[in-house]
Design a protein around this nucleic acid. Structure first.
Lengths: 229, 229
DNA sequence: AATCACTGTATTATTGATAATGTCAAGATT
DNA sequence: AATCTTGACATTATCAATAATACAGTGATT
């Protein structure tokens, strides 16, 4: 679903998808601030479509946890609190690292070429200074990798984690402090471990990659660990 | 959201909610088998409502990962594969155990009475042999507990984990092998740790509780751990 | 035999209108 | 003063009809 959107030729989007993507972009980039109200009829006018079409888009954004809907009342852009972000980052690390073994063991022939294509796309987006497109390909990279682990019900969980860690990073750092080319290059060690079919290396690469996305201070992942200290 | 549905007086449901709950029940209980096709117009007739209303219900079930929707094509009951179930169980354990500290530190006055009410409701449902209602209160118990951790964006992730572990258990065991009264009582040690404000005890109680839900064999949680061995 | 364009059918997507519900403030009642 | 109506308004929920899309046959073309 969210993978097809980043890999391959971008198919024609339905109206509800157009609205969904535009709104997701605005929310992740902070153009739509946390707490902002979203009225279905207003959005319908803005995207020149019916209310029900917007409704669908909003429901999908609600799936991602980007908006909060109260039945018969209103819809708001979700709050972005650090506790959520840190927890989602932990979950993400655990999910991706646990998947590493399955990924390496999988015989997914198109995995490596797909990842290489996505890597190229990231670099291009970075070169063009298009931060949101870079983020889309970044998500696509991690999702494509995870797809090889063949646990489809977990995939949307990872998607949510990716979205919110990206959003938190944007909302809590200055644009000039973010180096797009670096962000793209940071995926190289992951790619190399996949190419070498090195499960341990992949686990280490992912763990380091994820731990260094947002700076929560020195004690990231320190407290509340699931296993023995 | 899914909490209000189990705590307090059951408010009047909208049509789409009625359909959503009935379908969720059928899917979790296995009445609707994995892979079964769901046509919007058929369901609209069954629940005597419009297609769009069913559409909404299906979208919410899709959020939970209980159905798979392919745009302009079809909707099916999601597959239930063991890898997904085991991974979701791991995620669930990690999430709930990490939350334990925050839960104990929170000053949520209504937490303990709420949990006690839910405990009572579980016992009543068990007594009446109503397994699905028991499962609803079970989810309610864990969600209410987690609510005290104040990470709302993570809550739907936990909800998905709860749903799928329950579904997997139902789909992979015989009804006569499941003791409802036991299932309810298994929450007692959790309740006691909360009452005693014992974070370590709560973590242990939750970890044990979750590890003993489904028998994946002796190596549950053994492989692919996130931290050092 | 393989491929392609075409067409009918099944299904979802979208629409615009209407119904139902929640919010809020002003006035009435205790 | 506090609580309970009431009604106007804002907003979402539902409906029934129509449009758009995907898929499986069918036959023509190579």
């Amino acid at each position: 679903m969210s993978l097809a959107e980043t890999l391959g030729p971008r198919r024609q989007r339905s109206r509800s998808e157009t609205a969904e993507h535009a709104l997701r972009r605005d929310i992740v980039l902070g153009t739509l601030a946390p707490g902002a109200a979203l009225r279905e009829l207003d959005l319908a006018q803005r995207f020149s479509c019916a209310q029900g079409t917007i409704r669908e888009a909003l429901m999908r954004l609600s799936e991602d946890g980007l908006v909060t809907r109260r039945a018969r009342r209103d819809t708001h852009v979700a709050a972005a609190n650090p506790d959520d972000a840190q927890e989602l980052l932990c979950i993400r690390r655990d999910i991706e690292c646990r998947a590493a073994i399955r990924v390496i063991e999988s015989r997914d022939d198109s995995l490596l070429p797909d990842l290489e294509t996505l890597m190229q796309s990231m670099r291009l987006a970075a070169l063009q200074g298009d931060e949101y497109t870079l983020m889309e390909y970044d998500r696509g990279f991690h999702l494509r990798l995870f797809e090889a682990a063949a646990t489809p019900v977990v995939e949307p969980v990872l998607f949510r984690c990716l979205l919110h860690t990206q959003r938190f990073k944007i909302l809590n750092s200055e644009p000039e402090s973010r180096n797009l080319q670096d962000t793209a290059d940071r995926h190289l060690s992951i790619l190399e471990s996949v190419a070498a079919r090195d499960a341990d290396g992949l686990t280490r690469a992912l763990s380091h990659h994820i731990a260094t996305i947002v700076d929560f201070g020195p004690e990231v992942f320190a407290a509340g660990e699931s296993s023995e200290p």
